[in-house]
Computed example of a mutant assay.
Amino acid sequence: MSVVGERFRSVMAVGCLLVVAGCAVGEQPPGGPKLTVGIRFDQPGLGLRAPDGGFSGLDVDVAKYVADRLGTGARDITFVEARPVDRESLLRQSKVDMVVATYSITDTRKQQVDFAGPYFVAGQALLVRRTNTDIDGPESLNNSDWRLCSVTGSTPAEKVRSGYAASVTLDQRGSYRECVDALLKGDVDAVTTDDVILAGYVAEQPDRLKLVGKPFSVEKYGVGLRKGDARRAKVTEALRTMIADGSWQRFVTDSVGRSGYQVSVRPAVADNP
């Protein structure tokens, strides 16, 4: 074969390689590495799944912001439900990369998972029917066999029983939505968890529900990560930037603020929360 012919074959071969390489690049997800994030599906203003399959709320906004800082676009995030009883196991078993699900930072949980944050500070409260005039705070639960609902795997109901009313009957269910439904039906007398969570349900049915009393705990929400996850420092920096650049305030106003909830504490992100 002539030199010209050989050169032609070489050029064609290189061209084909470029085309193939271009096709391969085009097939990769455009937003970078994929992330799977555990959120709540049933908490208005925080983590809520819409009938059309979309997601909204403060935790969703925080997750998207952090993911973007890690190089992952919104289209490359897969949201899965993270109920309180499942959060640690989802992380330990690598079924999710992180949990952003009103996940309070506690010493007990830190033995199993790592946290970045906090990105929000809430307080435990009580939700009752609007017609209820007997319960106006945790102290009202003393000396009566009130029925109190909370979620399996969470700590709020135990806090009330151990700190205020040993006589309280606990009704633990799979979600706070189930607790609220039970409250509206009269099957329980009150629901307890963080005030910001309960405020979302009040916003849905203000004529039937109300928050009572002042918050009686401090709950610092963090981003849950697997033990030893090397991305923890980057997540921490992302949360700091989110608060500093005004994004955090916008997220809070657009989601939590709609329920009338008043944010009293601006979170201070720690290196080792």
Rank of each mutant, 00 (worst) to 15 (best):
36 T>K: 08
81 E>M: 08
104 S>Y: 02
128 V>T: 05
49 R>H: 09
48 L>I: 03
80 V>Y: 08
42 D>R: 01
91 L>G: 10
129 R>K: 15
47 G>F: 03
88 E>F: 08
109 R>K: 14
58 L>Q: 01
90 L>R: 08
101 A>L: 14
38 G>V: 07
58 L>G: 00
100 V>L: 11
80 V>N: 06
118 P>N: 09
58 L>A: 12
90 L>F: 02
66 V>S: 05
81 E>D: 14
109 R>C: 10
101 A>K: 00
64 K>Y: 07
131 T>M: 13
58 L>M: 06
52 D>W: 05
61 D>F: 11
70 L>V: 04
132 N>C: 09
124 Q>W: 05
101 A>T: 07
121 V>T: 01
73 G>R: 10
50 A>Q: 15
128 V>R: 07
52 D>L: 06
98 M>L: 03
57 G>E: 05
99 V>A: 00
84 P>L: 00
59 D>V: 01
90 L>W: 04
128 V>E: 03
95 K>T: 13
43 Q>F: 15
72 T>L: 00
49 R>T: 05
32 G>D: 09
95 K>G: 06
107 D>G: 11
128 V>Q: 01
96 V>I: 10
96 V>G: 05
104 S>W: 10
86 D>L: 10
84 P>F: 05
79 F>Q: 04
67 A>P: 11
44 P>M: 03
80 V>K: 01
86 D>E: 15
61 D>K: 13
60 V>A: 11
102 T>F: 14
49 R>C: 06
74 A>E: 07
111 Q>W: 12
114 D>W: 00
42 D>C: 08
74 A>I: 11
64 K>E: 00
115 F>W: 09
62 V>L: 10
107 D>E: 15
85 V>L: 13
131 T>H: 10
100 V>F: 10
82 A>N: 02
41 F>G: 01
105 I>M: 04
38 G>T: 09
118 P>S: 09
59 D>F: 03
97 D>F: 06
73 G>H: 08
42 D>Q: 09
81 E>Y: 09
124 Q>A: 02
49 R>K: 15
96 V>P: 09
72 T>H: 06
109 R>I: 11
92 R>N: 15
124 Q>I: 13
58 L>Y: 02
33 P>C: 07
131 T>Q: 14
106 T>M: 08
129 R>L: 12
39 I>M: 09
82 A>S: 10
76 D>T: 13
75 R>S: 11
67 A>V: 10
53 G>D: 07
95 K>Y: 14
33 P>E: 13
104 S>Q: 04
52 D>A: 14
32 G>V: 13
69 R>Q: 11
68 D>W: 12
123 G>R: 13
92 R>A: 15
52 D>V: 15
44 P>R: 04
119 Y>K: 02
112 Q>C: 14
62 V>M: 13
114 D>Q: 07
101 A>F: 00
71 G>S: 07
96 V>Q: 01
60 V>K: 13
35 L>R: 05
117 G>Y: 08
66 V>G: 04
91 L>P: 10
117 G>S: 06
78 T>V: 14
86 D>R: 03
83 R>H: 12
112 Q>D: 10
73 G>I: 10
53 G>S: 14
65 Y>A: 07
